[in-house]
Amino acid sequence: MAPSTQFEAAQPPSDAISALVFSPDSPNRLLVSSWDKNVYLYEVVDGADEAKLVNQYEHRAPVLDVCFGANRDEAFTAGLDQQVKKIDLATGEQTVLSKHSQAVRCVVFSPEHSILISASWDNSLHIHNPSSSDPPITIQLPGKPHAMAASPSKVVVAMTARLVHIYDLPNIASALASGSASSIQPWQQRESSLKFLTRAVACMPNDAGYATSSIEGRVAVEWFEDTAESQARKYAFKCHRQAAPEDEGGGDIVYPVNALTFHPVYGTFASGGGDGTVALWDAEAKRRMRQYQKFPDSVAALAFSKDGKYLAIGVCPGFETGMENYSGEGKTKIFLRELGETEAKGKGAK
């Protein structure tokens, strides 16, 4: 069995990490967006246990999210400067695709439908067709979006007030083609299974469901299918907590679960929390498979490479209640874990 190894990327961002993403067609290409206003492109070198910085792309403001586009040289970013941008990773050319009236929180690209969706704190989604120059379609949301994820056919948007909207991608694609924004309605409107503010959303690669996490150390797993049986299958569990020392009154210290990501091959998922740990879960068997050694700081973002060989872990200090200042300077790191053959393979439902 190949032993699993872990290493750190050279030249990490100089401030907190907002997102990590691997290229869908080039498994060793990693994009990282940071609060230091840059997007970084790394290349993981197989067998050498290193990740080299290939390029970096400067923005006007902190970058809150990044995703790959249709090919390995296309990327989209969500900026605090309210812009959605397209970046040509080869030339470094940046194009502004749309402007929101508040910071843009998330971007997702659906390669199946060639649709780019951006979510902004102005309570709206912009639906782009990146291959045309038409202005994007705007969808109003009932709350501020905080997390968004796409599966092959669905987009899950988690908002304040525990609102979750699920949109159907084929429906959006046809609306985009006909240019009618009014025909886009949420496919499903749900209330989050978690009582607290949603922190992250991730969709199952098999298009069956999704997982959400909250600031209160909890993860919920749900299924898209709107039947009683499928909905009965949903569950939530506590994680990323630590027992407080008795002399501080005992009880639990509860950390936010900042990151979720599904393994593209095995369908298991990883969660990363403010406690600096990463755990691997088997959603089917409802079991924790592994918990990795504690990282020096809060885990801000996670991503599996598309072949499932690497797990990228973005580590930087977490923002906690009562903080008046924040800096991830010098403490921001990117760890890459090369997984063993069956390390992320679940045992299946019992």
């Binding site: 910071a103 704190w121 150390g217 977490g318 924040y326």
Partner: peptide, 26 residues
Amino acid sequence: KNMRMVYADTEVSPEEKMALLPKYRF
């Protein structure tokens, strides 16, 4: 009941708070 949440604001996300810091404000 005795749990202590590291981040406890149920309306405003940490990112929104960070975005308001002078350092990051745009």
